[in-house]
Amino acid sequence: MGALTSYRLRLKRKRHLIRGFRKRHELSAVKNRTAQIAPADILVFTTLRNELVRLPYFLKYYRDLGVNHFLIVDNGSDDGSREYLAQQDDVSLWTTQASYKRAKFGVDWLNWLQRKYGHDHWCLTVDTDEFFVYPFCDTRPLRALTDWLDASEIRSFGAMLMDMYPEGPIGAEPYQAGQNPLEITRWFDSGNYTIRKNSQFRNLWIQGGVRARVFFDDNPERAPALNKIPLVKWRRSYAYVSSTHTLLPRGLNLVYDASGGEKASGCLLHAKFLDTFEAKSKEELQRRQHYANSHEYRAYNTRMADDPVLWCEWSEEYINWRQLEVLGLMSKGNWA
């Protein structure tokens, strides 16, 4: 890995920052409450479209963890999400009708907001169906984690995406606004993940889980990536390159230990497979705004038609973070 690669990555990072800068005009502020942000606040960054039913619990979950402010980009919702969010006192909201795909699936927008408002803050970048779980999250607030990361001089914290699913057919149990979606999608695959290292960005590329097992069992290389680095002590010069999978500068991607030890890590519980899923995947298929021509959504649609049950005999029922740590999906590292 020579100076040339370093320089190339530097240019790439700059290009992403410039993309964000250019796309800033696509965002128009609905409610900008960023003046409320205090110096040590923990911020959540989100892009969403038509997620009204999920929002109450999403906001509650992260407020309870101790998040101080939400910075949200609404991509043309027409179900009242925008109006709902505009009323929340700790939400700053921007809206755009521009293409999600051409904004690198929202990355450009969030890079811009993070550059502008996230500097020197711990920033958590999650979707509305992702619930961040970290060691001791049932007894220690998020600030305990970020304080510990600060003291340990760790700048980024990895959390693997873990797909959760219901026991019966998807959508058999309707989801009510405000309900914990993990009451319905309680199950996950505990031990079928594959990992390889990306030598360019030095991050790990993780695939597997229920989506690989059910939708991509004949085409595993197209299974979605599950590695994520959602929690970062943001600096103006940082940029997400593709979703929250990859960061630049690439030192931020080293959230794993290569000499045998375990670094601390968490999980993002992905409550995607609710009753909203079918409608959503049909709509996304039409809009064609998702990654790689939405092949993921095409795979879902073909498979869901004949058998919508993801559960199998060896599925694991979610209890708490300690269970995930014992199963080896996340680790306390040297945090005790």
Binding site: K197, I206, N227, A258, S265, S331
Partner: peptide, 13 residues
């Protein structure tokens, strides 16, 4: 040292 035999997101020897 980590847990031997475990390959995961934060342990990839």
């Amino acid at each position: 040292k980590g847990r031997p035999g475990l390959l995961m997101q934060s342990r990839f020897p």
